[in-house]
């Protein structure tokens, strides 16, 4: 088993390396597609011709195309994504600063999804083809049709501006900021033992997290419903009922357990999509995350910042996918058998 496991992990890691290389290549050609002088844009519009030449030398832009490509890959290997022409800092440093706010937001949205999407989907499956099911189905379709950015604006206007029960923007109120440790306001205030600050941070998180989660919950509800229904029709679930198991046990132990695979896969995929969707709402809610950084960079035509984020996001999603596969491997004996190969015992009996 151990050797098979090692072989599987190596194969999987090799695919990750391949994917990262593919992404890097894609980004390289995006840079090349940009009209105008790359050295000029890297050095900034205000740079003198001498400065531009220095940058050209440093980035290897005087080399032939394949030489430039190799130089680019070499810089990536050293974690060098270039510098922002706007903040004048390395893109990696900017990303490091913006990441916590996004992680916090995405984590909260994933949590909401698990807490709402999964149970509601199961409820719909339990009431298949009856009233609650039809209502949930409509709700899910409608939720999936809402433009995130618009929903964010409206919720912000209603709950923030009109009713004044939730903060409009930012991650914490002025003067409530906890000392920065992780960069996530909710975590930092807890670390500082500041409950008031924590509550304040949570209130700031509510609207963006709810907004971000709506379409994902809508999607999750439908997927959970469909896979639960398939699972509930399976013979082994009928068998559980034939043993006298209660409906709740049938739902959880036999239904949910067997369709955990698609659900884990979905949550993993959605994590990637959420990073993309965060682009739409971090700006609306004034959260200094990767999405807001990216939007800002696009408006400033900050090439290296944008493409750095593109590469970073792609790599993150690839790693999340790897994690999902590993979770499947650990949690599902069927996946284990398929990936690692196992011979049926019964053949010997």
């Amino acid at each position: 088993m151990d050797r098979r496991l090692t072989r599987y992990l190596l194969r999987r890691l090799w695919l990750v390396v391949l994917a990262v290389w593919g992404l890097a290549t894609l980004v390289f050609f995006m840079i090349k597609a940009i009209p105008g002088d790359e050295a000029q844009s890297a050095a900034g519009i205000t740079a003198t011709p001498e400065q531009v030449e220095v940058v050209r030398e440093r980035l290897g832009l005087n080399l032939p195309l394949w030489g430039q490509y190799l130089a680019y890959l070499g810089r990536l290997l050293h974690g060098d994504l270039g510098s922002s022409i706007f903040t004048f800092r390395p893109v990696t440093a900017d990303l490091g600063g913006a990441l916590p706010a996004t992680v916090e937001l995405v984590a909260a949205a994933v949590l909401l999804n698990l807490l709402i999407g999964v149970p509601v989907g199961m409820l719909a499956a339990a009431y298949e083809r009856r009233r609650p099911d039809a209502a949930i189905r409509l709700g899910a379709i409608a939720g999936g049709a809402l433009p995130l950015f618009w929903l964010g604006l409206i919720l912000q206007h209603l709950f923030g501006a009109r009713l004044g029960i939730l903060p409009i923007s930012g991650t914490q109120s002025m003067g409530m900021e906890a000392p920065r440790v992780t960069g996530m306001a909710t975590v930092d205030s807890l670390l500082a033992g500041d409950l008031m600050g924590w509550w304040d941070a949570v209130q700031h998180l509510v609207l963006p997290a709810v907004t971000l989660s709506v379409p994902f919950i809508a999607f999750a509800v439908r997927l959970v419903r469909t896979s639960m229904i398939t699972a509930l029709e399976a013979d082994h679930v009928v068998m559980a009922r034939a043993k006298g198991a209660s409906p709740l046990r049938v739902m959880l132990q036999h239904g949910l357990r067997t369709c955990l695979g698609p659900i884990v896969t979905l949550i993993g995929m959605q994590t990637g999509w959420m990073i993309g969707a965060a682009v739409l709402i971090e700006g609306v809610f004034g959260r200094p995350g990767v999405g807001a950084y990216l939007t800002e960079a696009v408006q400033q035509k900050d090439t290296f910042a944008v493409l750095g984020v593109v590469l970073f996001t792609g790599v993150t999603v690839t790693l999340v996918n790897l994690a999902v596969d590993l979770v499947q491997l650990v949690s599902d004996p069927r996946v284990r058998a398929a990936q690692l190969g196992a011979s049926p015992l019964g053949a010997k009996a």
């Binding site: 695919l15 990073i275 993309g276 990216l294 944008v306």
Partner: peptide, 18 residues
């Protein structure tokens, strides 16, 4: 796989600077 690992929004912003 590679193309799918880029969220549409992010890909689009990359293209829009390019």
């Amino acid at each position: 796989d590679i193309a799918l690992s880029l969220p549409i929004m992010v890909m689009a912003l990359g293209i829009s600077v390019a």
